[in-house]
């Protein structure tokens, strides 16, 4: 029997602690103590959503929830899922609005050309990620905005670094892709078969 004392904690913390215990161990018996009705109902509902049967006891002003499971339930805590594809998964990371060094004017042209040619990768192109100066390619004034929109419509996941947009004051000007954070980017790196940095 796993025991959790979640007294003095505000929602959703008691549910979170319960969730962590369920994820860390295969326990089929769990006891959670909370000190308010909202936490009691939330924890009870969470356990029930995870296939536990629950019993409630009141001890003074505290609530004791006892959950038991027969272990046959399939885990249903939602994790942020991404589309899985059969082919190889190439992630292209665009970390600037220019390609290579030497001459920035040339670099900008090369980058435009490169983005326009990316579609030749076909279904292997899995995610396109824009960080740092690369985010400037996703705004109104971008020469490749239409190309990116077409890629996105065709089903490509385009992620744009929110911190970077914010840094350049472009949050409102982004026109394509989903604003994202470093955790999503690192997760995508890990899941991809190949990361190409431009």
């Amino acid at each position: 029997m796993k025991e959790i004392d979640a007294r003095g904690l505000a929602c959703p913390e008691p549910v979170l602690r319960t969730k962590v215990i369920l994820q860390e161990s295969d326990t089929q018996n769990i006891q959670v103590v909370v000190d308010n009705g909202a936490s009691q109902q939330n924890v009870q509902r969470f356990l029930e959503s995870q296939g536990f049967q629950t019993q409630l006891e009141q001890k003074g002003t505290d609530f004791v929830i006892i959950g038991t499971s027969n272990g046959t339930f399939v885990e249903s805590v939602p994790v942020i899922t991404r589309s899985e594809q059969e082919c190889s998964k190439i992630m292209v990371m665009c970390a600037a609005d220019t390609m290579g060094s030497g001459d920035d004017e040339l670099g900008r042209k090369l980058m435009v050309n490169c983005i326009r040619t990316l579609k030749e990768m076909g279904d292997d192109l899995w995610q396109l990620i824009f960080v740092n100066g690369g985010v400037k390619l996703t705004i109104d004034e971008s020469d490749v905005l239409e190309d990116l929109k077409q890629l996105e419509q065709a089903g490509l996941t385009i992620l744009v670094c929110g911190t970077c947009l914010d840094h350049f004051n472009l949050l409102e000007k982004k026109q394509v892709g989903v604003t994202t954070n470093m955790l999503d980017i690192v997760t995508a790196m890990q899941l991809s078969d190949k990361v190409i940095t431009l």
């Binding site: 929602c11 549910v15 909202a38 936490s39 109902q41 924890v43 509902r45 969470f46 959503s49 805590v77």
Partner: peptide, 14 residues
């Protein structure tokens, strides 16, 4: 779905 998982603010109960 989140409500069924107990992701309900205390104020909703109040």
């Amino acid at each position: 779905d989140f409500a069924d998982m107990g992701m309900i603010p205390t104020v909703a109960y109040e």
